[in-house]
Design a protein around this nucleic acid. Sequence first.
DNA 1: GGGTTTATTGAATGATCATTCAAGTATATA
DNA 2: TATATACTTGAATGATCATTCAATAAACCC
Lengths: 194, 194
Amino acid sequence: MPRTASFDRDVLIANAREIFWQKGWAGTSMKDLEKGLGLHPGSFYAAFGSKDALYELTLDRYVEEGQARLDQLLHVHGALGALKAYLRSVVEDSAMPVRACMLSKTLLELSGQDNPLASKARQHMATMEARFATLFAQAQKQGEIDNVVSAEKRARRFQSDLMGLRVSAERGDIDALELADEIAADLDRTQAKA
Amino acid sequence: MPRTASFDRDVLIANAREIFWQKGWAGTSMKDLEKGLGLHPGSFYAAFGSKDALYELTLDRYVEEGQARLDQLLHVHGALGALKAYLRSVVEDSAMPVRACMLSKTLLELSGQDNPLASKARQHMATMEARFATLFAQAQKQGEIDNVVSAEKRARRFQSDLMGLRVSAERGDIDALELADEIAADLDRTQAKA
DNA sequence: GGGTTTATTGAATGATCATTCAAGTATATA
DNA sequence: TATATACTTGAATGATCATTCAATAAACCC
């Protein structure tokens, strides 16, 4: 029957994620993708349909990997430890091409233009937030932190701080690891109600 | 002598700031600017030189206005009160077309492409951070907050939290004002060393 | 190994991008 | 009112954008 494709779709999506993450949506041209993925237009469109469709796939992949990393940290450090370790990991992991969160980058670049990808980023943020809430609830249940403030509120604040940390890290002129540790240290403290 | 220009340059920069802030750098086309400013290409290039040059002007303007707003809040609420009020103001001010910080948007969109405007955003962030540090030092001097942690460190954390807050606010699906109050409440608490 | 089927190639498409510039127009002085 | 001077206009520029498609090449089944 037919000829088999010469590329590994999964690898291509991973490469595309790196390119999009670094250069942004508008900043990544088809030429960049063709060069980075080693694909000519015909193959590209046959495999992914469009630039936007591939971007969406990379966004999904990005979140899946974040969740997997969090699961792994949970297994090693427990709930509270995982949350703390996650803060460090996002600014110290040298495998990550960019410091800022890809969801934040997508949201900030595209929400003003009502691009559907911005909504997609919003949804993924909500998913991550829910994941954080589960971990906070677990930490509370195990007595690692108090339950003066609900796990949901803790999660929302955590994600906000996390995104701030990662924007700060993108600046490059400050000690992001120190900042991460400061945020992590706050997790231990009894939370005051706003 | 010559004919006088029919437009107010200051008003045009303010309009451009709004357009750029909302739609982003790549998301704003010359057509958008021509329409939004009521300027034809010739007039535009005579007045501003290039799209990038105007963007830089709007970035400067953006920071000037932020500083002015902070000065005003300082006069009304004092140092610590100004910092708290600033947190609220960035998410509740209906005159602001966008929630996310324009410096963050610029940095995240353009740092991956090594655009000089990203460096400009970085510089402005450092300027704002220094301004915050001055306010924290003042608050410490007046005994409004402890001095366990230096004003500079406080300022860095404050700006990080602020940027996180504003990215969160851009999502639109969470109560940003509540989040702002939570961050503000933390300013009163004795700061633990990381 | 021939035929079928699908992957690959790369030129072509039309749109839009930022920018330029020559021609036309209005104003302020003299 | 005449003229000099600068502003305004909008068509034209060449580059680059994402995407399409007809032609070519390769691999699998019979």
